[in-house]
């Protein structure tokens, strides 16, 4: 177990280094940062002065090390678009909104998926199973941003039940959260269903039944507890899906989170903010995957063979 954790940790650090190299390279490929900083009629002297000021005259490896050192202190530089604010200020202001949205979406998809998945497994092959599968599959085929627009059309414009956009009370998060979470329902539901089918077939479930445990207790307590392990692996993948959804949905709902910030920053070529966002989100992904893998190995000892999982 310890060996496994050490190897996984090592891989996580390597991945983070890889990500930092990609981000560093990308911004330099993007053309000289000086072009974005200087007015087009700047003289050669101005150029040279700014170059020294920002450290662009140094050798590349030195620039990279400085970049990493700054990144470790969460210092990604000043925003070009929003004068007077650092990239980290902007990210720090936007992050809570996105986390709220993603958190609600995750909660929604788990609350939808687990009961449907369990019932589908118990009533395998019946109409309930088919309906559950269809609804989940439909969700997986919808572009979240489109679902968002349609939800606004139905629930805000026609029915007037929920606010159209912006961030405010709890009612504001419902539509974007549902639109974001719906996509992941299918994945969670399918894994819950197949895990439940496996577990329901096991010896200890049979034993619990023979013992006379009520059926609802067998299903919802004994079986579900063990069937909850495989869906855990999905959290890493779902986090990735959610970022894409967050970017598009925040645009649709004018939700003041990192998705909107990212889009604004990319279009304004505000690379300090873009760098910071990509690095931070990658770090979050890597951490989630690390935690999931270690937790998985802890819960299911069969994973802990020597060498990490592919």
């Amino acid at each position: 177990m310890q060996r496994y954790i050490v190897i996984r940790l090592f891989h996580a650090v390597l991945a983070l280094i890889g990500v930092s190299i990609v981000v560093f390279t990308l911004v330099r490929v993007a053309g000289s940062p000086l072009d974005a900083l200087l007015p087009f009629n700047a003289t050669e002297e101005d150029r040279a002065r700014v170059e020294v000021l920002w450290g662009f005259d140094r050798p590349l490896h030195e620039q990279y090390l400085r970049f990493v050192w700054n990144a470790l202190r969460l210092d990604f530089g000043d925003s070009i678009k929003f004068q007077g604010q650092t990239a980290m200020d902007l990210i720090g202001q936007a992050l809570p909104a996105s986390l709220q949205l993603a958190g609600f979406a995750l909660l929604f998809s788990v609350l939808m998926a687990v009961p449907v998945g369990v019932v589908s497994a118990v009533k395998k092959g019946t109409l309930i199973d088919m309906v559950g599968k269809t609804v989940a599959l439909l969700g997986q085929s919808l572009p979240p941003f489109w679902l968002g627009i349609v939800l606004i059309w139905i629930f805000s414009v026609n029915l007037g039940w929920l606010p159209v956009s912006g961030r405010g009370g709890f009612t504001h998060v419902i539509l974007p959260g549902v639109a974001l979470g719906w996509f992941s329902v299918a994945a969670f539901m399918r894994l819950t269903r197949s895990a439940m089918l496996n577990v329901l077939d096991s010896e200890y479930v049979k034993f619990a039944r023979i013992k006379g445990t009520p059926e609802w207790k067998v299903v919802w307590k004994h079986a579900l507890k063990n069937a909850a392990i495989p869906p855990l692996t999905l959290f890493g993948i779902v986090a990735g899906i959610m970022v894409t959804g967050v970017v598009t949905l925040e645009t649709v709902f004018a939700w003041p989170g990192i998705g909107q910030l990212a889009l604004t920053a990319v279009l304004a070529r505000d690379y300090a903010v873009v760098q910071g966002l990509v690095l931070l989100i990658s770090a979050i992904f890597i951490t989630i995957n690390l935690v999931v893998d270690v937790l998985y190995a802890y819960l299911d000892p069969r994973v802990r063979y020597d060498g990490a999982r592919g």
């Binding site: 890889g18 990735g240 970022v243 894409t244 992904f285």
Partner: peptide, 8 residues
């Protein structure tokens, strides 16, 4: 797999 695809 660790990079936020859509941002990139």
């Amino acid at each position: 797999l660790s990079l936020p695809l859509v941002l990139l």
